[in-house]
Simulated scan of single mutants.
Amino acid sequence: MAGHSKWKNIQRRKNAQDAKRGKVFMKLAREIFVAAKQGGGDPEMNPGLRMVIDKAKASNMPNDNIDRAIKKATGDLDGVNYEEFYYEGYGPGGAAVMVKVLTDNKNRTAAEVRHAFNKNDGNLGENGCVSYMFDRKGYLVIDRDMHEQDEEEVMLEAIEAGAEEMETSDETFEIYTEVDQFTSVKQALEAAGYTFETAELTMIPQTYNELDEEQAAKMLKLIDMLEDDDDVQDIYHNFEANEEVLEKLS
Results as ranks from 00 to 15, higher is better:
E165R: 11
F134W: 10
E148P: 09
G122N: 04
G162N: 07
I175L: 04
S184N: 07
S131I: 00
I142S: 03
D180G: 05
A161L: 02
R136T: 11
I159E: 11
V130P: 03
A161R: 04
E151W: 09
D121Y: 15
Q149C: 05
E171Q: 06
D135C: 11
G128Q: 07
T183M: 03
G138R: 00
N120D: 13
D121V: 11
L140N: 04
M133Y: 15
V179C: 04
E178H: 12
E148L: 14
V179A: 08
Q149H: 13
H147R: 05
M133C: 13
S131C: 11
G122L: 12
M155C: 11
E126S: 15
G128Y: 02
N120R: 14
D180W: 03
A161P: 00
E167N: 05
E126Q: 14
K137G: 07
M166Y: 06
M146H: 15
L124I: 12
S169P: 01
M133K: 15
F134A: 06
R136L: 12
E152T: 14
T168I: 07
D170P: 09
I175Q: 03
E153D: 14
V130C: 01
E160Q: 09
Q181C: 08
M166N: 06
E151C: 08
I159W: 08
I175T: 02
N127Q: 12
E148C: 12
H147F: 13
G162T: 02
N127S: 14
A163E: 00
M166K: 07
E167M: 09
T168F: 10
V130T: 05
Y132C: 06
A161K: 02
F173V: 10
M133E: 15
E152M: 15
G125T: 06
G125R: 05
M166V: 08
